[in-house]
Nucleic acid binder design. Structure first.
Lengths: 223, 223
DNA sequence: CATGACTAATTAACCAGTTAGTTAGATTAT
DNA sequence: ATAATCTAACTAACTGGTTAATTAGTCATG
């Protein structure tokens, strides 16, 4: 009680509980009472740290996307050649999502909300995260094409294709689990998925050449 | 007013308005008043035809998915050889979604809701629609592999990969539009996407053989 | 004149956001 | 040193606007 409990801890607990609730139920379905209960704080504390529900939701989005951007840009800023870099990018993105499985849900929710006026956050998110990443990956693809390494794909289609294969798998896992008999989120299956995605991408992107040794980086992922 | 207006029309108007509202805002965000207004009927009429909001939502889902299943099964039941059939399947699925763009939103919403207990509908949807389609496409893939036409892909990964590329494009279009300068939903771009998806799939699935003439059914578009 | 189609008005529950505080510890005054 | 004062962190209880759902009926037609 009282003024203890390290404010940072409380704030972080709220943010984490909110991320879970928003990812699962969306902003309309999320209940501030549930977030407070999950974070083990009084509901009024949410409003002490964040202006309102919408602002809290925005903070959750920024937290998730900034983490992703940081990870992914470390790869995109490296000086790998195009083939290795695009594989490393996809792998890094995959690993981020595999260990932050609320991210794909938040992302898809926000994508669907992005009709004019529906989301106060989407413009900021696009400008801060999506646009820079898209530009960078697009440039990488054009570079690979120019060097004759990649097939002449259209980045505006290829980028969303890559993202979709990674993001969709995780957000559809609960349904998948009921269709097939195994658990799509077991470490074994996640590793398989990683390999499948990278295989799919290289098959669709790389210009076939002699002795194509497909480079599928091993995955250090936990569930 | 009174007992006129053909009940079928009213029911259909409600269903259509509800589909739009649910797709855009999810079940929690949807407002029954908005649905009634959009359908130009009194709100109580929703409850005359459907037990409650949740039941109406279920009816919307069944309507959307049964339409899709019918379309897709006409292809899957045909006697095309594996290569042509899988392309025809993907093409048909793509065309269905392209002309029913609320479908991908409803689908993704329901996928994210599918945590134990969260959705009353998911078990029925899986049993009635997803499971049968998945089994049929899985069998088709295994057939193609057995005949040496397809690479040895894992259906449990390949099927969601195909679906994701098709579904994700449409639900992410509003965001994409703000990242790139063109409209991803223009007929021209949709045709391009169709070609890109089919190209992507054939590149990743077909066993390379001499004289590979890529078969891109109708809407003959180049990337 | 019964029945299916439909509605205006109302109700009950829910839930985001507020209020009016309390508590614990840091800071200053004595 | 210690009492007085301040402030950030936190909470129990409440409020009012919103919204799903119901009620009690009207209207048209076979």
């Amino acid at each position: 009680m009282g003024s203890r409990g390290q404010p940072e801890e409380s704030r972080a607990a709220i943010l984490q509980a909110a991320a879970k609730e928003f990812a699962e139920l969306g902003i309309a379905g999320a209940r501030t009472d549930a977030i407070a209960r999950e974070a083990r704080v009084n509901k009024a504390l949410l409003y002490y740290y964040f202006k309102d529900k919408e602002t809290l939701y925005g903070a959750v989005l920024d937290h998730a996307f900034s983490g992703m951007k940081a990870k992914v840009f470390r790869v995109l800023d490296s000086d790998l050649p195009p083939r290795e870099k695009i594989m490393a990018y996809a792998g890094e993105y995959f690993d981020f999502i595999a260990s932050n499985q609320i991210y794909p849900k938040l992302m898809q929710r926000e994508m669907m909300r992005a009709r004019e006026g529906n989301s106060v956050h989407i413009d900021r998110l696009i400008k801060t995260y999506f646009q820079p990443i898209y530009r960078r990956v697009g440039a990488l693809l054009r570079e690979g094409i120019a060097e004759g390494e990649f097939r002449k794909v259209d980045p505006a289609h290829f980028v969303p294709s890559m993202i979709s294969m990674i993001v969709f798998y995780f957000s559809s896992a609960p349904v998948m689990q009921r269709i097939v008999r195994f658990n799509p989120l077991s470490p074994r299956r996640i590793a398989q998925r990683r390999a499948a995605v990278l295989d799919f991408i290289s098959a669709a992107l790389f210009q076939p050449r002699a002795g194509t040794a497909m480079a599928v980086r091993k995955s250090g992922v936990r569930t």
